[in-house]
Structure formats: structure tokens, C-alpha cells
Computed example of a mutant assay.
Amino acid sequence: MSKVFDMELFLAAVLTGSYATRQRHLRQAKLIQAEIAKRWQRETPWTWQRKHLAWYLKHHINQRSEATRYYYVLTARLLARRLETSWVFNI
């Protein structure tokens, strides 16, 4: 039996800001994780490549408002920082 990946524990080292901001990042990161797992069967961020996050940003939030896209890009950058990569994402 495998354990469920704990996104909150994963992002704990890089999450800063108010309670509402931290909760928004966690909620968005869990949504991103679920969609990537569904599409590529990559359950944890440790197995992700840049293309996975770029795909999510391009195909799942492209019809959302500019503000929503901005907040998802911030979450993607937070994930990249936690993974210690130099991935760059644009809106």
C-alpha cells in the first residue's frame, strides 16, 4: 500500500505569507498535482519535468482571468523553487 503524497509537507519549506496565501498555494498545488497525475501518471512533484507544469498552465488556466493565471504562475514558481530548479514560467 502506497502513501498519499502530502503537498503541504512538500511546500512547507517555501511557503510564506499570510494564512490565506499559504492556503491558496496549497489548494492550487493540489489541483496541479491531480491533473498532472491524471494526464501523465506522475504522482509526486519529484518526478515532474518543466513540460508538465507548462502544460497545466497552458491548457488548464488559459481561459481564466489574468489575475488567476498570475496566481497559478506564482504557485508554479513556488513548486520550482522547492524542487530547486531554474524553470521559468510566463503568463
Rank of each mutant, 00 (worst) to 15 (best):
K3D: 09
V4T: 12
F5E: 13
D6K: 12
M7E: 02
L9V: 09
L9Y: 10
L11D: 04
V14H: 12
V14F: 02
T16I: 04
G17L: 02
S18Y: 06
T21F: 06
T21G: 06
R22M: 09
Q23A: 12
R24M: 10
H25N: 13
L26P: 07
L26E: 01
Q28P: 00
Q28Y: 05
I32Q: 13
Q33K: 10
Q33N: 06
Q33E: 08
Q33G: 02
A34V: 00
A34S: 14
A34P: 01
E35Y: 03
K38Q: 08
R39Q: 05
R42H: 14
T44R: 15
P45V: 05
W46L: 14
T47E: 08
R50G: 01
K51I: 02
W55H: 13
Y56E: 00
L57T: 10
L57H: 09
K58M: 00
H59Q: 11
H59F: 10
H59W: 06
H59D: 04
H59V: 00
I61A: 07
I61R: 11
N62K: 14
Q63N: 11
R64Y: 03
S65M: 09
S65C: 08
E66T: 11
T68K: 13
Y71P: 02
Y71H: 14
Y71R: 14
Y71M: 11
Y72E: 02
V73M: 11
R77G: 07
R77A: 04
R77V: 03
L79D: 01
L79M: 14
L79C: 06
E84A: 05
E84Q: 12
E84M: 03
T85P: 01
S86I: 00
W87N: 09
W87A: 02
F89N: 07
N90Q: 15
N90T: 13
